[in-house]
Design a binder for these strands. Structure first.
Length: 618
DNA sequence: CTTCTCACG
DNA sequence: ACGTACGTGAGAAGT
């Protein structure tokens, strides 16, 4: 038996590393006693983060309480993995920091279904996010084990990740190669592997007590664990990639990027991403640049370059001027590079052995509770045409179904702010109700035009986002005077929105700048951006409406069809012959009243590729 | 590490 | 009294 000692918050703690059958017997004795005393913290060390790549391996499984940790060398196989597997299966109160990752690792490498672990798991990362959801960059503690331990347990708690990076380097390894190649005999690796579970075990009761002190309901904590499980199931399922489409697409986009980069180089721009080079070259060609970035540099983003290239927002020729060839080349090179490298190439390189991608779904990422998807970022694929989404396929014999909420944030706003005439509209509107046209008619009468609709749609978003007339004018292209009038009219028709916004800001002030959402979520407000409370209130409840819908979908037995949550939409793959019926069920389980406002969803049935919903014929 | 850009809801 | 667009992930460039 190897043993390491360390001091945490004044206590000497022990990390045990069993080396033979006798040692494993001692682990078993500890495990049985610890299980009687309370929850057991669990963690894994692996070769990397790419759970589904062919070379991925589980290296160690750690168990621990507040004083002892046991690092089981899974990689050694034999008794080591059978003891670890038995212990995992027999734990009835599990503490994990960022449970979704370890659930998926154990599901993939140990064959333990995540459905068997999830009901017994408390995720300390979820607890922390419900106390303060802000990232460190936003002034929060963050939800990493290190900053949480430093805040709640011991300011000098070791940064095990950073510490290991140093060890990797001393062994001639890197951040990338270290996790897979560090010998299991390395004492720092073993110590840190053990300390992580001890810290998790100590964190859980402290965070529970804090949640209770803050009055956060247990129901919210439970709900959030359920959502994490549903997202993990979708991540495990993954999405099928059309490799015969994606691989040539990645090549074609790389060629296109190279071609237009070469054109830009002829105008003195060697790096198309260099703001300084592009702005200098354009100025040298006689173009006048006026827009500035936050830091004061001349702006050369898409909105600036498109008019110079005589292109509208849909990249169609305007015919107003001779296109600037450099602006045109930079625009096209950047788009081809992004689409090719960030999307198409990722589809090909991140595949598992079955030709599927398993993008990571973070069920509780944003300050508002919104989810995020990364590796690749499937929530952000270009939606203007089918080119990228065409590479994602339904299962063989299936079709894609996309069910999205209708104007969800406006409905949530109407419900939360009790906007009388808006609620009346949603209640009487029926299936094809158009809130923006309804608003235009309220203000302008029956003669309201499509253009009026566009202006009031902008005003509506302005309200939800807390924006002003100037930004709205810039976004919609309408004049500032016209927008100012529309916003004023909007406030007359829906006076409750402004009242609610002020009320919510007052509530936040009285609660140390934390607004409590309708679902009990804690939403910290920045002191100099209190107007954002309107958006936080709506966005976070819209997120919880999606979560509620996901739970109903699971209860209806439809989880197996779900592939991806996208804020106001659920993407699914369903057998072609049952698609019509399943689509209606998605609509049904994504529709329910919210404080008297009907939340409604509409399903769209496509073909075999996701791109079929964006114009592809396949 | 920060800034800028660009993809989404 | 006034005015403030919200939330993400990812990569390149420059500090």
């Amino acid at each position: 038996m190897q043993e390491f000692r360390h001091t945490i918050a004044g206590d000497i703690v022990t990390v045990h590393v069993p080396e033979d059958a006798d040692d494993l017997g001692m682990f078993w004795d500890w495990f049985y006693q610890a299980r009687e005393r309370g929850p057991i913290a669990l963690d894994t060390e692996t070769t990397g983060l790419d759970i589904y790549s062919p070379g991925f391996r589980l290296r160690t499984v750690q168990f621990g309480d507040a004083h002892d940790a046991w690092v089981i060398l899974w990689e050694r196989g034999g008794h080591f993995d059978s003891y670890a597997r038995d212990a995992i299966r027999r734990t009835r109160q599990i503490l994990i920091h960022n449970a979704a990752y370890d659930w998926l690792v154990l599901n993939q490498c140990a064959g333990i279904p995540l459905e068997d672990l999830a009901p017994w798991t408390t995720d300390t990362r979820i607890l922390a996010a419900l106390i303060d959801p802000r990232q460190p960059s936003e002034g929060g503690i963050g939800t990493g084990l290190k900053p949480l331990s430093a805040r709640w347990i011991d300011p000098s708690a070791p940064d095990t990740q950073a510490g290991l990076t140093t060890v990797f380097r001393s062994l001639g390894l890197t951040k990338e190669t270290g996790w897979a190649n560090i010998p299991l005999s390395n004492p720092t690796f073993l110590l840190y592997a053990g300390l992580d579970v001890i810290l998790t075990a100590r964190l859980a009761p402290i965070l529970r007590a804090e949640l209770s002190r803050l009055g956060v309901r247990d129901e919210l904590v439970t709900y959030e664990h359920e959502i994490a499980r549903l997202c993990a199931v979708m991540q495990r399922t993954g999405l099928l990639v059309d490799q015969e489409y994606a691989a040539p697409l990645a090549r074609r986009l790389a060629e296109e990027a190279a071609h237009y980069s070469a054109v830009a180089a002829r105008y003195g721009v060697s790096k198309i991403g260099s703001v300084a080079q592009v702005s200098e070259a354009l100025t040298g060609m006689g173009e006048t640049l006026t827009e500035r970035t936050d830091a004061g540099a001349l702006k050369v983003d898409k909105a600036v370059l498109l008019p110079l290239a005589d292109l509208d927002r849909d990249w169609q020729r305007i015919g107003a001027r001779e296109p600037n060839p450099l602006a045109n080349a930079v625009l096209r090179a950047k788009r081809a590079k992004k689409w090719g490298e960030d999307y198409a190439a990722q589809f090909v390189t991140q595949l598992d052995t079955a030709g599927r991608i398993h993008a990571s779904i973070n069920s509780l990422q944003a300050r508002t509770g919104r989810m995020s998807v990364s590796g690749p970022p499937l929530q952000q694929l270009p939606s203007g045409d089918h080119v990228i989404r065409r590479a994602i396929l339904a299962e063989p014999g299936h079709v894609v179904i996309s069910t999205d909420f209708q104007a969800i944030e406006m409905r949530v706003l109407a419900a939360l702010a009790d906007v009388k005439r808006m609620k009346a509209g949603f209640l009487s509107g029926g299936e094809k109700f158009d809130i923006h046209m309804y608003t235009a008619r309220l203000v302008k009468g029956p003669a309201a035009t499509k253009r009026d609709r566009k202006v009031f749609k902008g005003a509506g978003f302005g309200k939800v986002y807390g924006g002003g007339s100037r930004t709205l004018a810039r976004q919609t292209g309408a004049s500032e005077a016209e927008i100012a009038q529309a916003v004023a009219a909007y406030d007359r028709v829906f006076p409750e929105i402004k009242q609610a916004s002020s009320r919510w800001q007052r509530q936040a002030f009285q609660n140390r700048m934390v607004f409590i959402s309708a679902t009990g979520r804690r939403l910290p407000l920045d002191r100099d951006r209190t107007f954002a409370v309107t958006n936080y209130a709506c966005q976070s409840v819209a997120r919880d409406v999606l979560g509620q819908a996901m739970l109903q979908i699971e209860s209806a037995g439809l989880l197996e069809f779900c592939r991806l949550p996208i804020h106001d939409e659920i993407l699914a793959s369903a057998p072609k012959r049952e698609a019509e019926e399943i689509a209606r069920e998605f609509e049904r389980f994504m529709s329910f009243p919210l404080y008297g406002v009907p939340i409604e969803a509409e399903a769209e049935i496509g073909g075999q590729s996701w791109g079929s919903l964006y114009g592809a014929d396949y």
